[in-house]
Amino acid sequence: MLVVEKNALSEEIESYVEKYGNDRSALLMILHEIQKKHRHISEFAQQEVARLLNIHPVEVYSVISFFAFLNSNPKGRNLVRICQTISCDMKGKKQVVQAIERELGIKIGETTKDNKFTVEYANCLGLCDMGPAMAINDQVYVNLTPEKAVELLSKVK
């Protein structure tokens, strides 16, 4: 990482700390912001957060590893999460997943070579009456069919 990048990241994290406070209870929201902007929370970022909140880096890492939506290693530019829980499962999640896997040429859990998509399973998204459901980044899509799912992916930049 370049020094300039490091400095920019430090400044960014400092601004979150300014916004949410330097108490440990601000941790979750600070991590959210970093995750949202960078799609992952890097080693350096985690140490900066630890420094500013006056906790140990391993504690930050531990919290990140606990939560399914926070990650320490980079993922694709767009994150596709498909609900795997029973109501969506019964409405044809499997077909949707197969279509997506075929379209992108990867298996669930993987990232496309061009780094455009990472596809993952998620547990119930709270859209069970409109299953199968999936989320692309922070937008959700419901009543999917294999065709619809593929079409939606094609619209993503």
């Binding site: 209870s25 919290v63 939560f67």
Partner: peptide
């Protein structure tokens, strides 16, 4: 951030405090 168990009230509070 994607953890069902955080619906349990004390787990919820732990995570609000910045813990697992």
């Amino acid at each position: 951030s994607g953890a069902y168990v955080c619906g349990e009230e004390t787990a919820l509070i732990e995570s609000l405090e910045g813990h697992r």
